[in-house]
């Protein structure tokens, strides 16, 4: 299958014209990269990707960019990858992620497609908009959370969720001030997670200068071994989360329109003193329960 066909198939998935096999065969190793805006995710993706590309590994890269209200978007992450564009063994695709969760909803399907087509490594980069980018962890094998020094608030926020998803932490731009502090904070965070069979490594990198990349690759590979060894167990929990996300997504989509109408009616009712907030909530919930 050539890249033209793969590309066309992806478009069909994007346009809801096609559904592909939605279970993985786990032949490929899927690496996810997430973290706040401006930490240098794309440069890091490039460095990791270049390593695998140079080694002749068949590599797929999925880049997520945010999309705007009217459906238009700039998919600009590719700029940093263009050098890889001349490799025969690399396929890069940009997606506009309208959905929350930091990755386009169809990312999972695209991973499956690429895996089925014999890609050995698949790297997926999230939008990097905020703290809610947890979805990526459900669809990848190795989830890398990238941070940089001086992100005090973000680290606080990490405590409330995103640290759950990290298999590897990266402190990029490690040559700027406060790198040690960030490192220490992360170590505390990792220790708080208690005893697990996988000890989350924290890697310092300066992606733009290719510093720390080899160590990072080493950790990625170590995690891959761990992942493959514990596949049955991990698979279950990933699948659970993934289903949780996708089902909720579908339900939400179904009820969203109706919900808007019901809320409007409730607002009118409350304003006209025909109902109060609690009453209205119960009424709406009842309705939805029956109708969906």
């Amino acid at each position: 299958m050539n890249s033209r066909e793969i590309a066309k198939t992806i478009s069909k998935i994007e346009n809801n014209e096609l559904k592909v096999n939605s279970t993985r065969n786990y032949n490929a190793h899927v690496i996810g990269i997430t973290g706040p805006l401006g930490v240098g995710k794309s440069t890091l993706v490039f460095q990791i990707a270049k390593h695998y590309a140079d080694a002749g590994i068949k590599l797929g890269i999925i880049l997520n960019d945010p999309s705007s209200e009217n459906g238009g978007s700039f998919l600009g992450d590719r700029i940093r990858m263009q050098k890889l564009c001349e490799y025969d063994n690399v396929f890069i695709r940009s997606l506009s992620a309208k959905d929350s969760g930091g990755v386009a909803k169809i990312s999972g399907e695209i991973i499956n497609l690429l895996e089925e087509k014999g890609f050995e490594k698949i790297i997926i980069e999230s939008v990097g908009a905020g703290q809610s980018e947890i979805e990526i962890a459900n669809i990848v094998d190795t989830c890398i959370v990238v941070l940089m020094p001086g992100l005090g608030d973000e680290i606080q926020a990490l405590k409330s969720g995103i640290n759950e998803i990290a298999d590897i932490f990266v402190v990029n731009k490690a040559d700027i001030n406060q790198a040690e502090r960030t490192l220490r904070e992360l170590e505390m965070l990792v220790n708080m997670r208690g005893k697990t069979s996988w000890k989350i490594p924290i890697v310092k990198t300066i992606a733009i200068k290719h510093k720390g990349i080899n160590e990072l690759i080493e950790k990625i590979e170590l995690h891959n071994d761990y992942f493959k060894k514990n596949l049955t167990q991990i698979k279950k929990s990933k699948l659970r989360n993934e289903l949780n996300y996708l089902i909720k997504y579908e339900i939400n989509k179904k009820i969203d329109k109706k919900l808007n109408k019901l809320i409007e009616t409730s607002v009118q009712d409350i304003i006209n003193n025909n109902s109060d907030v609690n009453n209205a909530i119960n009424k709406v919930v009842d309705k939805i329960k029956f109708e969906s």
């Binding site: 009217n70 238009g72 978007s73 600009g76 590719r78 506009s96």
Partner: peptide, 10 residues
Amino acid sequence: RDSGVEVIYT
């Protein structure tokens, strides 16, 4: 972009 197109800028 503003007219609803997905733009890949390289």
